[in-house]
Design a protein around this nucleic acid. Structure first.
Lengths: 337, 337
DNA sequence: TTGTAGGCGTTATCAG
DNA sequence: CTGATAACGCCTACAA
């Protein structure tokens, strides 16, 4: 019988402090144009009552929620062990330092109706959104293209409706990887791709293919992966079975490279003497292979942090820059190629 | 010049459909007591205008937000790399199937003021919260104990104020691990603990200690870890340097066991012949070591899914059960002990 | 089945 | 510096 179950309201605070709602409100927010006594009385009342402003009511009038969303339309929870997404999270967090904005992470749920996340985003729960790891069928581009909610994509969206995004030059990355293998003397070079419903995977494949064709080699040793260790291993299995003469592999993620290396080593191939391997990401996994993986640095944190900065600007009303910001991946030396 | 930047409101929909706000509202929600024509007109208007209800306004009157929070007061980097947290996420998702509730993931940010998450939770943004991976200094218990917001903890909270929680019997788990090592003939048994500001880590340590003392052995080979691969490796380094006679290790997580195994193998110790190892979790990492890790199954998904079910009941107004639900970890055979 | 009216808790405006 | 008062967008009796 200690009190009512309902939360105290601004009215309660005002009454307890012996001031008006307006004064209480001012004391709670800016604190400007409030007498010290009033301020103290309000602070005291807040503490006594355990008052917390009702954000629904507040955002109804301010049209601000004080939070932004990170949208990860990744259907499978296992993907959440991916270092790439860890980097994404870190990038956003980093850009939010000192902003007082809350981060709300939206992940896809398996059962969810297709429009779910988009509806949530557009119904005024957040002030803006960073979208990462999106797939072709998400159709998030369509659903968010009306510009009603500030959005920035991490990685070029499929349907480019002038949506702001930041990206890393994945074509250049794929090309650099292939060129490294060519430079090591490899002549039978395969690639293990990421999910082909993601632009990053397609771009890395394109870069790899271009380099091989320019070198006069066939670019047909392609196996689908899914950015996971297991997927990389399966892909390597298939490649090895069909093309035992392979002497070089570009895996479009370090996790897949890890799986591929396990399969190669289990098959008795020496790395890099028999088969050279180049990965992609340099987000930690490359340091745990033996030998240490030669890979390309994917500047995820910088990329996402830049994306978030653009978003914050947009939330403030500043238009996003016309040209997307594109970072460049650079080779990280290891012992596998 | 296609239209206003502001979102359409219920009023706009009603006007476009030629009905009143009430009718439009009814059509949007239950759909009961609405004529087919009115319903059709409203549906049409919604589609044409791209209307999405303003949740702030709605929740202001319904006192429901339609979303629940998963609170993980864990520094950003770890959350998406740790299989335990991936399991937590999966557990919540699973329990939310068919509910129409949105999941909002709240993670700690380094710069954040201590009370941040709690304030967010209590300010009416969500209907309830599942708290996982909480630490002693989070003080979330205090801040949420007033019962204003339905909350369920995953893992026994430090300050048990009759807060509802589900847990796994970590004492039993630590005991089982130690007994396995004893049964294998180990006499110099160490443990690598989790962060000691978490009840799960303390409990596993207690169980391990009890078993050793009952066997008449000293329980003093203890090294702090942090549930990560690197932390496990560092801890094993220390243990090995100070106590080279070690012949058994219980690592309180499989990730730490992985790191420990790497150090042991690098030091030339054979597993399990020279040193036996038991891990904890069985969430995937144990299958990737060589030899495969002997470990204890941590039923995270079940546990979290149960916690979420309790929370959903609480949100509906049903009180949480008096006694917490405690699951039991069971041994998973591997080749390391 | 439909419309009218009131209020949810907060901030913003504008006199005092 | 303070206090009425009017929105913000929506839901829900209640009356028609």
């Amino acid at each position: 019988m200690t009190g009512p179950q309902t939360s105290p309201t601004l009215d309660d605070v005002a009454r307890a402090a012996g001031v008006s709602r307006s004064t209480a409100s001012r004391a709670i927010n800016g604190g400007s144009r409030v007498s010290p006594e009033a301020q103290a009385a309000v602070d005291d009342a807040i503490a006594r009552l355990g008052y917390a402003p009702n954000r629904a009511a507040r955002s109804l009038v301010t049209r601000r929620t004080g939070s932004i969303a990170l949208v990860v339309p990744e259907p499978d929870a296992r993907i959440l062990t991916d270092p790439f997404l860890a980097g994404v999270l870190r990038g956003v967090s980093q850009a939010l330092v000192g902003t007082d904005l809350q981060l709300v992470l939206l992940i896809a749920r398996p059962d969810e109706r297709p429009g779910g996340p988009a509806r949530y985003l557009r119904s005024g729960h957040v002030d803006g959104a960073v979208v990462a790891s999106h797939h072709r069928e998400d159709r998030l581009e369509d659903q968010l293209a009306d510009g009603r909610l500030p959005v920035v994509f991490v990685g070029r969206p499929f349907d480019d409706r002038n949506l702001p995004y930041v990206d890393v030059d994945n074509v250049a990355g794929g090309r650099t990887a292939a060129e490294r293998l060519l430079g090591r003397g490899c002549r039978s070079i395969a690639t293990i791709t990421g999910p082909l419903d993601m632009t990053a995977a397609l771009d890395r494949l394109d870069g790899w293919r271009a380099a091989l064709e320019e070198a006069g080699l066939a670019a047909d040793l392609v196996a689908d992966g899914d950015f996971t260790v297991e997927g990389g291993a399966r892909a390597m299995d298939r490649l090895l079975a069909e093309h035992p003469q392979i002497d070089g592999v570009f895996a479009a993620s370090d996790l897949m490279a890890t799986g591929a290396m396990q399969v190669l080593q289990a098959a008795g191939r020496r790395i890099p003497e028999d088969v050279a391997v180049v990965g992609y990401d340099a987000l930690g996994a490359a340091e745990r292979t033996s030998p240490r993986l030669t890979t390309l640095r994917n500047p995820v944190v910088e990329m996402v942090s830049a994306a978030t900065a653009v978003l914050l600007d947009a939330v403030e009303g500043h238009p996003a820059p016309a040209a997307p910001r594109i970072l460049v991946p650079e080779l990280v030396e290891g012992g596998t190629a």
